[in-house]
Nucleic acid binder design. Structure first.
Lengths: 129, 129
DNA sequence: ATGCATCTTATGCGTCAGCATATAATTGCG
DNA sequence: CGCAATTATATGCTGACGCATAAGATGCAT
């Protein structure tokens, strides 16, 4: 059993790590690549993904983002030409999303920043999610 | 030295923990007490604080919140009568903030929820911030 | 005492998030 | 077949955030 103080200390510690790392990531990605963290993470999943396109639904699946927020994130990426939407012909309710060549390039650049920030600011021990 | 995969795994793990716990906290505090997490945390610092009042500045010091966001959080708490602002006579630029009796009560109730959520959802191992 | 840099809090503005709902397509059941 | 329920995405709305800046108070230098 865990004492209240213990609980709070652990939570504070988690908060501290999260805020430090996420803050640094947000700033670095924004300043150097004009991307929000959400935009980068979306791009990342698209680029890392085997096939070249994924349905919104599948994307949303492993992101911590509401469906509506993902939809708007893809809007923003599409407007800047980093991503392309295409109707899924098999099920016309669905929408495929794929990174464009430009998107792939931007992702590769930003990924270096992302990893560098993690290397600099992520504490060595992490919780077992 | 840490491999890229390692870094990303650790970060994902931190993200997972943070999102799970903060999401549960947000929902529980909102549904059961009509408080945002930020509002609770602000109230918490005011109540736990030795004296009965603190300057905005000191409050902001140990919160992960911009100065403007804190100012507006105090606005909201004040509007609901959970907190009181008072000009600091010694330095009239400063503003004291103190929890009202009502604020103290609301905090005590919400704190039980807060701790219960932590006990249920905080993973046992936490990073060394 | 006056003016200027500094400090503290508040506020205008733009962005992104989530919830609820609208819209469009599909499925299933009579 | 036709209609209701379901699924996938988009959108209206509201809330909270951060940045830049305004407004008010202080203090130091001359």
């Amino acid at each position: 059993m865990m004492s209240e103080v213990d609980l709070i200390e652990r939570w504070r510690s988690l908060l501290t790590s999260y805020n430090r790392v996420s803050g640094q990531l947000d700033r670095a990605l924004q300043e150097r690549h004009a991307l929000t963290r959400t935009e980068f993470e979306t791009l990342d999943r698209l680029v890392v993904w085997d096939g070249d396109k994924r349905r919104m639904q599948d994307l949303a699946g492993d992101m911590y983002l509401s469906q509506s927020a993902l939809s708007r994130t893809v809007d923003r990426l599409e407007k800047r030409g980093l991503v392309r939407r295409a109707i899924c012909e098999a099920d016309r309710r669905g929408v495929f999303v794929a990174a464009t060549d430009d998107g792939v390039r931007r992702h590769a650049e930003a990924r270096r920043t992302y990893l560098a920030v993690l290397a600099d600011h992520l504490p060595p021990a992490a919780p077992r999610g």
